[in-house]
Every structure is written in structure tokens, then in C-alpha cells.
């Protein structure tokens, strides 16, 4: 391939002047991180609650959890993004009025974090449920036999054990969430992929722009991976879940 790479593009000024293309890319990274972090918090919180509900003895709670999971994981992520940003406001007039009267970036950001957070929460809920259900039945009984309430049994016995087991799939989920945040470009949020495309369109340096974006995604994902590995080591319990490895 005799493509003439032009890495200098990032140090050129944008047509508007005053900013360089690397700054544009950096602001995209900022939005990617902001969306990822907020969506991750929503996903972990909602996912833990819903996953836990699905393991309770109460029929209504388990049914609620089940509906939640099926709702958010059976609709394609891209469709959900459009639903949150384009469709739902049409049915909520005050929301629609607010959206047209303010800077669109607010509505884009809120739609993106809700969409990604709730989509991912369904997946995390399933992992939390699997983690809890993988524990010996006696653990719940032992907690209850000691006089702990069901809530206390979850809080002090079942969830701390389940979360230790599901750290590896949670790591994958976290990395997926970061990469899925690029879908937010479809509703106009100027995150990393959006900015890479923009740079490409202005300068025709598509290869450079997307190579840079790819590297940045790899670096963020791997950092998330390292952080989770540290968490996993920190909470490791001697004599627990080491049977299969190390």
C-alpha cells in the first residue's frame, strides 16, 4: 500500500482556527469517558439490584427483574439509542420542549448514558444472578439460621461472595460499555469516534484519525482491564476460587 501517512495532521489548526485537531480528538475522548463512567455507574447499580431481585423468593420481584432484563437486552443497542433520543421525547411534551430550548449536548449526553447504562444493566443483572445462584444453597440458609434478615443475608453474605466470582465477566462488560459508547455518535454526541470521523472529513486523513481513535480505545479498555485486575487481587480471599487456576 503506498498511502502517504500524514501524522502531522493532528498539529494542524482546524478551519475555525484557534484549536488543533489533537484538541478536537481529546475533547472527544472526554465525552467518551464521561458517558462511559456515568453509564457504568447506572449499569452497576441497576444491574446489581435487578440481578438480586431475580434471586429472591418473591414471585413479583423475580418477574419484575425478568421483564427488565428481557426488555433491555432484546432490543438492539442502536435502536435503543434512537428510542431514547428521538422517540421518547415525542411522547413527553415537556421533555421535548426542554430539548429544543437548550444546547443539544445535554439531551444527547442524558440519552446516551441512559441508553448504555440500562442496556448494560440487563447484562450485568444476568451476571449478578448467575453469581448468586452459583453459591451453595447452604450459604443463604446459614445466614438466615443466624437470624440475619433476607436483606442482611444479601448484603453481608451472598453479594460479597457473588461479586468476587463475577469480576471477570464484569470486566468484559465494562470494556464493552466503553466501546459501545461510540454508538452515541449516531445521535450527534461529539465523542471519540464522532471526532475521528470529523477530522477525517475535514482533512481526508481518515486513516490517521481512526488509527489514533483506535489506539485511544485500546488504551482506555486496557486501563479498565488493569483496574479490574487490581480490584480482583485486592478482594481475593485465601482459599476461595483458586481451585481452577493460579
Amino acid at each position: 500500500m503506498n498511502y502517504h501517512w500524514n501524522w502531522g495532521v493532528f498539529f494542524q489548526e482546524t478551519p475555525e482556527g484557534g484549536t488543533f485537531y489533537w484538541e478536537i480528538l481529546l475533547s472527544g475522548l472526554g465525552w467518551t469517558l464521561a458517558v462511559s463512567v456515568v453509564a457504568w455507574l447506572i449499569a452497576m447499580l441497576a444491574g446489581s439490584v435487578i440481578g438480586t431481585l431475580r434471586t429472591t423468593q418473591n414471585r413479583w420481584l423475580t418477574a419484575t427483574g425478568h421483564c427488565w432484563v428481557e426488555l433491555f437486552r432484546n432490543i438492539p443497542l442502536l435502536v435503543q439509542m434512537f428510542l431514547w433520543y428521538f422517540v421518547i421525547p415525542e411522547f413527553v411534551p415537556p421533555l421535548k420542549r426542554w430539548m429544543v430550548s437548550t444546547d443539544p449536548v445535554y439531551a444527547q449526553f442524558i440519552s446516551a448514558v441512559l441508553c448504555l447504562g440500562l442496556f448494560t444493566s440487563a447484562r450485568i443483572a444476568e451476571q449478578v444472578r448467575a453469581g448468586i445462584q452459583s453459591l451453595p444453597r447452604g450459604q443463604r440458609l446459614a445466614g438466615m439460621a443466624l437470624g440475619l434478615t433476607p436483606l442482611q443475608t444479601y448484603r453481608h453474605v451472598l453479594l460479597p461472595e457473588a461479586f468476587r466470582i463475577i469480576i471477570p465477566p464484569l470486566t468484559s462488560e465494562t470494556m464493552n460499555l466503553i466501546k459501545n459508547s461510540s454508538i452515541a455518535l449516531t445521535i450527534g454526541l461529539a465523542e471519540l469516534t464522532f471526532r475521528a470521523r470529523e477530522i477525517g472529513e475535514y482533512t481526508f486523513s481518515f486513516f490517521e484519525a481512526f488509527t489514533a481513535a483506535t489506539l485511544v480505545y485500546v488504551i482506555i479498555s486496557m486501563s479498565a482491564n488493569r483496574v479490574m485486575a487490581v480490584v480482583e487481587r485486592r478482594v481475593a480471599v485465601p482459599g476461595l476460587i483458586t481451585a481452577g487456576g493460579n
Binding site: P136, G138, Q139, L141, A142, G143, M144, A145, L146, G147, L148, T149, H156, V157, P160, E161, R164, V237, G239, L240
Partner: peptide, 21 residues
């Protein structure tokens, strides 16, 4: 109140069921 009742009765299980964490 089952939690209070259970708290007064000790129980030992076949597989110990200590909390591993």
C-alpha cells in the same frame, strides 16, 4: 418474627457453611 426466632436457635450444617469471604 422469624429472624429473631432463628437467632435463638443455633444451627450446624453438614457442609459447615462458613462464610468464605
Amino acid at each position: 418474627q422469624l429472624p429473631q426466632l432463628r437467632a435463638k436457635i443455633g444451627m450446624v450444617f453438614q457442609h459447615f457453611e462458613l462464610f468464605p469471604h
